[in-house]
Simulated assay, not measured.
Amino acid sequence: MPSFDSRNVAVLVGNGLSIAFNPDLNLRAITAEMMDRIQSATDEGNDVVAAMREIAQRALPQGVNSEDDFEMLVGAFGAETRTLSYLDQLAALTEPKKKKLRKAIKRVAAFAERVRDTGLSHVLEVIFERSVSNHEDARNLHAFVEAVTTTFDGKVVFANLNYDTLLLAALLHVCQSDVTDMGHGFRKVRVTTRTGEETEVPALRATASDFPVGRRVQLIHLHGSVTFWSNAPKTIFAKLDRAFLESHDQWNSVREQKTNIRPVVVLANQKDKSAHVEEHPFKLAYEMFVTGLQNADHWLVVGYSFKDDPVNAKLREEFAEREEKPKVLVVTFGDQPSRKEVARAFGWGKEDGSSKSWLTINRDGANGIQNTDDWSDFIA
């Protein structure tokens, strides 16, 4: 059990937080919009468009019916690429002299990559366009962020599972001089824009030592962000701000293959997520998340469904190490997930007795949580 000189908190944020402060980021609505854009796409080339539509139709043959359909759709775009990568590795081992076979696999894999990038560009473009709040919602989000960052005067680590920029904007508004994210403060990388020009943009941090010690508030994107980009060989990792994405029409740049970078995010089904998060920059994000959990005796979970296996694994591992359990407040909206499901995600079973000694669940949503009795009990 670590020694706490200050009040530290680890905050895990899921899609429920984004929805609470911008209903347009509801996953069902996003998925429906994505399907509409995929079906009406005309600008990427006939073969790519046809393949993209076929994948979407195969993933959701009955259309959009639930929030779970988002993961089904985005996971489908990456599945073929990963399969072809395994085929290439297998061919190299079993038929190393058959150059034509290897060449054919690589050609198909390159096409699959383009289909993937095109599909995901539509996914992230929708999220990017909706990553804004009206004045009232933004003010409420700022109030929540201010409550968290002022109540806890030690290290505050936000581990964000969302791809949107709502939380980033709120943190910059509330505590800009005290916050750091995964974008490097001074190291730059060069990327190609739609016009063919090269320009310098901030790099993503490469190691934990890249994070400045003096900034007590950290924002970690566990599964990436609309602002995270890399080149195909994964030798360049960049952070592109909203102004860059808008001014360079970056989403169309991807679809038209007029940029050397593409989004780097974990948009995958549950089966593939565990492999994705072992890659950079997600591996670093999970490392920082675990450090945040280890150094805090208060864990705040907001708008998370407890359905991500890699995330649950880290929660369980650190929770199991604690002789004295952390104080946990889970903020959700409605009846799901149940107390049993939440406790089980932390590795707490029936044989361990009641979870009420360490776990509080508030089911009224994130908006205004700082004004509730559950919050007062959590921070006491």
Rank of each mutant, 00 (worst) to 15 (best):
R242N: 11
D249Q: 06
L245N: 05
L245W: 11
F228L: 01
S253V: 10
I220F: 02
E256V: 05
N231Q: 07
L219K: 05
T235W: 09
K258P: 04
A243G: 05
S225L: 02
L219E: 10
V226Y: 01
I220T: 05
Q218N: 02
A238D: 06
T227Y: 08
D249V: 10
A232R: 15
N252G: 15
A243N: 10
H221P: 00
N252D: 15
D241H: 07
L240Y: 05
H221M: 01
R242M: 09
D241W: 03
F237R: 08
L245I: 15
A243E: 14
N231T: 06
W251R: 02
R255H: 09
K258T: 12
W229G: 00
A238L: 05
I236M: 08
D241I: 03
H223P: 02
R242L: 06
H221Y: 14
T235G: 00
Q250Y: 07
S247R: 12
S247E: 12
T227A: 14
L240V: 05
L240P: 04
H221L: 01
I220D: 02
Q257W: 11
T227K: 12
H248T: 05
L245Y: 09
P233I: 14
A238K: 09
S253I: 07
V254R: 06
Q218V: 00
K239H: 12
G224A: 09
E246R: 15
I220Q: 02
E256W: 08
L240R: 03
Q257K: 14
T235S: 12
A243Q: 12
F237E: 08
S247Y: 03
K234W: 13
T227V: 07
F244N: 00
F228C: 03
Q257G: 11
K239Y: 11
L219D: 09
R255L: 10
E256L: 13
A232Y: 12
Q218P: 00
V226P: 00
K234V: 10
W251T: 04
V226A: 09
I220G: 06
G224T: 11
H221Q: 09
Q250D: 04
P233W: 13
W229C: 00
L219M: 06
E256M: 08
T227R: 15
S230W: 07
R255M: 09
A232D: 13
E246S: 15
D249F: 04
T235F: 07
S247D: 11
L245Q: 13
A238R: 08
F228V: 01
H248S: 01
H223G: 03
D249R: 08
L245S: 06
H223R: 10
K234C: 12
A232K: 15
H223Y: 12
H248Y: 07
L222M: 04
S225Q: 03
H248W: 07
R255K: 14
Q257E: 14
E256A: 13
T235K: 05
L245T: 08
T235R: 06
D241M: 05
K258N: 14
T227P: 00
N231L: 04
N252M: 15
P233G: 10
T227M: 13
H223F: 11
H248K: 01
S230K: 10
W251C: 05
I220N: 03
K258F: 11
R242C: 08
L219C: 09
N231V: 04
L240D: 04
N231W: 08
F237V: 12
V226Q: 02
K239F: 13
Q218R: 11
F244A: 00
L245E: 09
H248P: 00
H221G: 03
T227E: 12
S230G: 03
